[in-house]
């Protein structure tokens, strides 16, 4: 599965060409098709008059990892946050087009965003645990949503899935803020999967982490896709190449190209995509 040719090299030797040839050597297989869970239909998002996302259409396949890449400011976070309506809180935001989750328009007035967010979880770029105990961090979401099972068991399962259990099992009642950045991020993932969502949105979950913590979270994402649909925003081409099944390339608010990751990285149809993933700009 791993593209060994893509492992991190010292910056001086990692020229555009060397990265590029390494993709050609080991192309990633095209994943088996699965039904679409989320379908984005000509979505535009405006901050006031500034168009941050421009007529983007894409289908997010079930139990697959979809990576969104693109230069800073191209609208990746805006698009991602629109999927679980986290952008609703921003004053002066405007939407056109539609996002459908399992066929239902999420902006439909009868669709309670609380139900949506329960099914579409989110992990933020910066770890943001609650200033509460590790246990409460994981249990809270389930508790407020009226979880009727065994909370303690749920917390344990979620922490195990997030590969954090061994590190924290003896200090569940301690403050989550005492954890390291990587542990906090895995705690946030545990918190999100404790709710058993169908889709997990991750906005650069590894940007604040060291390579070891990053590797763990990548492993975790790889495991999660057995059960969940993951949409991952990342600035790290290697990461997109390693963990994703599909890759979408955005540029200045537009979706330039989206395809199976293996194809995007070896044989992009658009010149701009190729330039970006080979590091010629961005």
């Amino acid at each position: 599965m791993k593209l060994t040719g893509l492992e991190v090299r010292p910056p001086m030797t990692r020229t555009a060409d060397s990265v590029r040839t390494s993709f050609v050597v080991e192309p990633k297989p095209v994943p088996e098709r699965t039904p679409s869970v989320i379908s984005i239909d000509r979505l535009s998002v405006l901050y006031g008059t500034h168009v941050a996302v421009k007529e983007v259409s894409m289908e997010i396949a079930e139990r697959r990892v979809t990576a969104i890449i693109g230069p800073s400011g191209c609208g990746k976070s805006t698009l991602l946050r629109s999927i679980n309506r986290m952008n609703d809180f921003i004053a002066g935001i405007g939407f056109q087009g539609a996002i459908r989750f399992r066929g239902r328009d999420i902006r439909d007035p009868g669709y309670d965003p609380i139900d949506l967010r329960r099914s579409v979880g989110m992990v933020f770029q910066k770890p943001n645990p609650f200033p509460k105990s590790i246990y409460r961090n994981v249990a809270w979401g389930a508790a407020i949503n009226g979880y009727r099972g065994d909370l303690t068991q749920l917390v344990e399962d979620a922490l195990k899935k997030a590969a954090l259990w061994e590190e924290v099992k003896d200090k569940l009642s301690q403050s989550a803020l005492a954890l390291s950045g990587g542990q906090q991020q895995r705690l946030c993932i545990a918190r999100a999967i404790a709710l058993q969502p169908e889709v997990l949105l991750m906005d650069e979950p590894c940007s604040a982490l060291d390579p070891i913590a990053t590797a763990r979270i990548e492993d975790l994402i790889d495991k999660l896709k057995a059960q969940y649909t993951v949409v991952l925003v990342t600035h790290n081409m290697q990461q997109a190449g390693r963990v994703s099944d599909y890759t979408a390339f955005m540029y200045m608010g537009e979706l330039i190209e989206m395809d199976a990751t293996g194809r995007i990285f070896t044989n992009p149809q658009v010149r701009k995509t190729q330039d970006y993933i080979t590091g010629r700009f961005g």
Partner: peptide, 21 residues
Amino acid sequence: PNSIREAAFALGATRWQTVRH
């Protein structure tokens, strides 16, 4: 910090639950 509110909302909390807890 706003990140705490976002964390709560992303878990399907209502505004009151976010404020209260």
